Each structure stands twice: as structure tokens, then as C-alpha cells.
Simulated assay, not measured.
Amino acid sequence: MTQDDRTPDELLDAIGPAFGKLRRGVLQEVEDPISTKDSTRALLLDMVLGCPQSPGRESHDRGQEMTVGGIAAGMCVDPSVASRMVTDSIKAGYLRRVPSQLDGRRAVLELSEQGLEFMRTFRRRQRAAYEYITAEWPERDRLEFARLMLRYVDAIDDLRNRRPPADA
């Protein structure tokens, strides 16, 4: 049975397992494989880079800085695991701890120039992997899937706007 032969319910039921496959190392199966370690580092660095207080980011929500605790929460891992991941990225030269601009007693995380270059390279490799995986798709389908995936991710980001405030 192909995707086109599935009922709407069958398609929607297949989404969860499909996302599971995406998380199980698909980027190791492409022409220029991306290691698990690089994928994990990129996930961590992307969280720091995506934080509104990161250098080079305009913030409409000042007051957010990325900490080891924020990494742990965002990755749904124990703080000790997040701490080891952060330490690994610091030792690799991709990340540094700096004093908070909001509370000088705390340390926050920011990417080094080497970390920014790592992310530029990683994103080029992700695009190459996407193009390799979808090489036999019509261009229209490749672009439509990319557009819909970005829309999906934006909807995930907007979930916090749908929740009532904690103090309501």
C-alpha cells in the first residue's frame, strides 16, 4: 500500500511512527552521513542559537537567556545529562559560558564563532541530505513538503501562545 492508497485515518495514524523514523538516525543513511554526535551537538547549539538573547538575534521577548537548565527542559533530559552535553560542546570550542546580562551571578550559554561555523556547515549538510532523500520527487513536491514542514514547526512554536497564562 502506498501513501496515496491510504485513508485519511491511516495517513494520520502513520504520522507518529514516521516521526519516530526521522529521529532514528536518518541523516546517517545519506550520501554524506551526519554522525549522531554532530546531530546531538547541533540540536543543543540550535537551542542556544534560537534563544532570543543569542548574539545576532533580534528579540521581541527580552529576558530570556539559555542556561543548562533550559537545555535540560528543552531536550527533556536530566540536568546532569544536559550539563555533560554542554561541557562537551564547550570542550569542542562550539559553546561558551558567559555572565548573564540580567543577573551577573548566573552563567548563560552562547555560541562561539566556531559554533556558529559548525551550525552553518551542519545546515548545509541537512539541506544536502534533504535533497538527496527527495531526489526522485518532483520539485513541486519537494518544495511543498518543505513549506508544510516549516508550517508544522511554526505551529509547534505557537503552542505556547494557545495555552492560558499560568497565573490565569
Rank of each mutant, 00 (worst) to 15 (best):
A135N: 09
K37A: 12
S80K: 14
A155T: 09
D13C: 04
M75I: 02
S83I: 07
G50D: 09
V86K: 07
C76E: 15
L22V: 05
K37W: 06
K21Y: 07
V153W: 04
G93T: 04
R124Y: 04
L22G: 13
E110I: 07
E31P: 02
W137N: 05
E58W: 00
K37H: 15
G104D: 07
L111P: 00
T40L: 10
Q53E: 14
D46K: 11
D157Y: 03
N161C: 09
L12K: 11
L11T: 04
V48W: 03
Q53A: 14
L49S: 07
I71W: 00
D103P: 02
P52V: 04
D157C: 06
R162F: 11
T36P: 01
R120V: 15
E58Q: 12
V153E: 08
L143T: 08
G56W: 06
T36W: 09
E144P: 06
L95I: 04
A107F: 05
D9S: 13
C51G: 05
R123E: 08
L109W: 00
R62G: 04
R84Q: 10
E117A: 15
L159P: 03
V98F: 10
S59W: 00
I34D: 02
E144I: 12
E113G: 01
L95A: 14
R96S: 09
D32S: 08
G70M: 13
E136C: 02
I34L: 15
A72Y: 09
E29L: 02
C51Q: 01
L102R: 12
A155P: 06
D157G: 05
G25W: 07
A42V: 09
L22I: 14
L11V: 15
A166N: 12
A72G: 07
A18V: 04
G50V: 00
Y152L: 12
D167Q: 09
E58Y: 00
E10C: 08
T7C: 05
I15C: 08
D9Y: 03
M85F: 13
R151Q: 06
R124G: 07
F145C: 05
M119W: 02
L12H: 08
G70F: 10
F145Q: 05
I90H: 02
L22E: 11
P99A: 10
P8F: 11
E131P: 01
D154P: 00
I90W: 01
R23S: 13
A135K: 12
D46L: 14
E139T: 13
V77K: 07
Y132F: 15
V77P: 08
M66K: 02
L22H: 05
V81E: 08
L12Y: 11
R57S: 03
E31K: 03
D5Q: 13
V30I: 14
V153A: 14
E31G: 00
G70C: 06
V98N: 01
I156F: 15
A135F: 11
R142L: 12
S54Y: 00
L109Y: 04
S83R: 13
D9C: 03
R142C: 02
P164L: 09
V153K: 11
W137K: 01
